[in-house]
Design a binder for these strands. Sequence first.
DNA 1: CTGAAAGCGCTAACAT
DNA 2: ATGTTAGCGCTTTCAG
Lengths: 331, 331
Amino acid sequence: MTKPTMDDVARRAGVSRALVSLVMRDSDKVSDRSRAAVLDAASQLGYRPNLNARNLASKRTRTIGVVINDLHNPYFAGVIDGLKSAADDHGYRLLLNSAFLNDGDERGALEAFVDFGVDGVVLTGARIPSAAIEHVARSIPLVVASRPMTSELVDTVNNDDRLGARLVVEHLVTLGHRHIVHIDGGRGAGASQRCDGYRKAMKSAGLEPRVHRAAFTEQSGAAATREVLASDRPVTAIFAGNDMSALGALDALDDARRRVPDDISLVGYDNTFVAALRHISLTTVDQGRDEIGRLAVEMLIERLEHGRSEARHAACAPSLIVRETAARPPT
Amino acid sequence: MTKPTMDDVARRAGVSRALVSLVMRDSDKVSDRSRAAVLDAASQLGYRPNLNARNLASKRTRTIGVVINDLHNPYFAGVIDGLKSAADDHGYRLLLNSAFLNDGDERGALEAFVDFGVDGVVLTGARIPSAAIEHVARSIPLVVASRPMTSELVDTVNNDDRLGARLVVEHLVTLGHRHIVHIDGGRGAGASQRCDGYRKAMKSAGLEPRVHRAAFTEQSGAAATREVLASDRPVTAIFAGNDMSALGALDALDDARRRVPDDISLVGYDNTFVAALRHISLTTVDQGRDEIGRLAVEMLIERLEHGRSEARHAACAPSLIVRETAARPPT
DNA sequence: CTGAAAGCGCTAACAT
DNA sequence: ATGTTAGCGCTTTCAG
């Protein structure tokens, strides 16, 4: 009852092991007769090629490793849909691993992929230092998605976070807001760019930026919002670093009996499915996550199959999604 | 600039390859001196063991493959947290793969894990036929989480979906509802059990069950709700098969200008983070997903390390989470 | 405690 | 078109 190997199939089909190998890899230099015989023997035995052996011998895996920053953030599911569809198109398999919002796990997941010898890896929303990423990129094609970084070694694909933040501020300013607070994403991917975009846009509008530090989670967004409300400085709008923290903010505002958007406006970032729910109807920014995912694997394929070696940095245009949490400030 | 192998390390440390192998696996039968020498050489060279070679030779991977039914459903992130923490405790690595709500991908992901030779696999919310699962379970330890099935071969860990559904119906009946419609989960994992629990509970209460078929997605919940509203039969409460379809229902009700819970009550299942948001505040059922995840890997470990071979079926108690979408029916 | 040698199951020249 | 023969990088007896 032990698993059949290629030799078993070869024996049964009355051919050599090499021939079986060719058939398993759909080589075209096999006669139809032998092919049929081999396939037949294989299916009778329930033979399946051992991937460890295959990868070891061929040094290729046709597998892309994906490190997901936070499985709880619905944003990533969208990126992965894009990765998946492009991977399918090119005949690659995806293997996922979550970083559980923790640097150690993120590193571990990345290393595990390298040790497994995947052909390439894509990091989504990575938080570990660029240097650590570049180190790995020296030994394997690597693209970083949804996390801006400048590097000569790794490819990146992002939306333009600075621009996205500016769109938000301009929208709020147009509505008449002057006291716009930003709850940032701390060390989260793209957080500093969004924060920077916010600051610049505020200054261009002649307004004073005011940032409360948080992270890309609901809990953290709620906590930061409580801080904001506890201060005695006026606030008419909050721009949260992502949808998750915006949702936390929404809860905190509710707790504090502040109506959104009547008393205070709120904007998020990412356009997750939750933002689109009627009862939430969060004004937010769409990154084009499917496109980001597709581009990421396409960039990987360029390196893998077309030998590109200079880094490429792709940017998707963010778009403001106007819903109901941002309106004119109270007069 | 080629990757260093064990031989390189051995040479540099002035020992044999076998010794290096022992050190890499932290065997205790290595002198401190040699160990230090080996570790030193390894880190100088930046050596990392090739997992394909290791797995091939040892026939073990210390890796658990996890097939996730739908990455977009936040329910699964909770289960995976449980899996992860138990896996960490036992020194196993997790590898994930999504089924993208599609049977072919689910099968593919499962097979890929088997071909990679992972030590065991856990299926979360699987939808493929039991027979297909049992077939795989013959060659590798396998536990099915969040998807009820009776089998002598595979372990399962679930909440008691029938009981959960009954809790919902009883709650609604107690509130005074008599026209309770169930939007089911179609072929989704646990859907038929929930539906069955609903039917039985309705009958015990002397009420007539009424089921609209759907799936465990937002879109499908919305569509089914539109159907329900389009019929001319009275409805005062909707019990959706899971939170995702409940969220779809919520949107559809909003579209139809039906207030929740004033005009119509709504209950979900899973207690995802979205249900807990103040602006949603969905009454739902908690499955204890973290516990389900933990149990799943523990059951795997029992097979892997303690030689258990008879199937075990664990059940977690579901609990009703009362929030604000279910109230007395309009009078 | 250390070293030599035989594979693990497959691929990839190289022959034929 | 098919067979032969080396490995891939590691683990694992088995001797010393």
